[in-house]
Amino acid sequence: MTALVGDIGGTNARFALWNGQHVEAVRVLPTADFPSVEAAIRAYLQDIGQPVEALQSVCLACAGPVSGDEFVFTNNHWRLSRQAFCRELGLRDLLLINDFTAMALGMTRLRDGELIEICPGQSEIGRPRLVVGPGTGLGVATLLPLTDGGWRALPGEGGHVCLPVGSAREAALWGCLHAELGHVNAEAVLSGSGLLALYRTSCVLDGKQPRLASPMEVTAAALAGDAYAEAVLEQFCVWLGRIAGDNVLTTGAQGGVYIAGGIVPRFAEFFARSGFSRSLRDKGRMSRYFDNVPVWLVTAEYSGLEGAGVALQQQLESMSY
């Protein structure tokens, strides 16, 4: 019988088999290419030569708040009904979890060489750890250590908190964003589309004509030495530090901070020397709170799938008692 795990974001759906507590047969499918998650799963199974009838267990990690039967994906066109999903694929149950619940659990499966130290420190035993990841959106979750040595992931929607303002420049940028968007959340700048929005807003503020048309172009120009693109990417890193620092204070995450997601690893060296660390601890009289908080950049490719597998394994083990 087949256990399937999926990590579904706004742009891509990643699927794999969960076998022997490991993922295998990983495939990445663009969500735009399929009308539904069921259609994408059927295409995945056909590609790897597995019959739909062999499916026994499925865990899907999905971008957005998870509750009830109906799930509407935050950043793509798919909708999902647990009952309809199980009926179509012949399953008794579907384990549906938030994508950053899976990402957080994936941090417990990291291997050597999948972390880059950004801020040195020492994890405080028994304290939570924070996971933050800019991608198609901005994911935030918390890892809680358990007394038996395991971990519990707490889901949340921290990417939709209000974007903090820490300087006159940021206030001016926020004003431009507010005039366009109304409510300005963290994801408005700390995501793929957010990086492009930050670049365009900066151009408006500075009276410049935008010449870069995608987040990839902004990143590439910054890494190639374009001074204006560098300044925009620097502001992105600074704002990420502010959000991460706010969440550390809120959750007490002195166990450490993982920076995950698909964006930041593309400019790891730039990020390591950016103002991220300074803005992380720019909290007035609480700045010393961060003196020993380690920060790591995660370079693992499929942490969300690994975490979905961990969640599925936990469910299967609990059902066996």
Rank of each mutant, 00 (worst) to 15 (best):
G156E: 01
G149L: 05
P128D: 07
N185S: 15
L177V: 01
N185D: 15
V189C: 15
L143S: 13
G149I: 04
L154R: 13
A186Q: 11
H183A: 15
G159C: 10
G182Y: 04
C176I: 04
P134C: 14
G175F: 02
N185Q: 15
P134T: 12
R129T: 13
S167K: 02
W174N: 05
E157N: 09
L177E: 04
V165G: 04
R129M: 15
P128N: 11
R169V: 01
A168C: 09
L143R: 14
A188H: 03
V140W: 02
R129Y: 12
H178F: 08
H178T: 04
E170Q: 15
G166F: 09
V165W: 02
G156V: 03
L173K: 03
L190Q: 00
H160W: 11
G133A: 10
A172T: 04
E170L: 05
L143A: 13
L177A: 13
A153L: 11
S167R: 03
A153D: 12
G159S: 06
P128V: 10
N185Y: 11
T147P: 00
G175N: 14
P164Q: 11
E124C: 00
A141Q: 05
E187Q: 11
G126C: 12
H160Q: 14
A153P: 12
G149H: 05
G182E: 08
V132A: 12
L138M: 08
S167M: 07
H178M: 07
G175M: 07
C176P: 00
A179R: 13
E180F: 00
P145R: 07
A141F: 02
E180A: 11
R169W: 08
A186G: 06
L190M: 00
E170T: 04
G149N: 02
R129K: 15
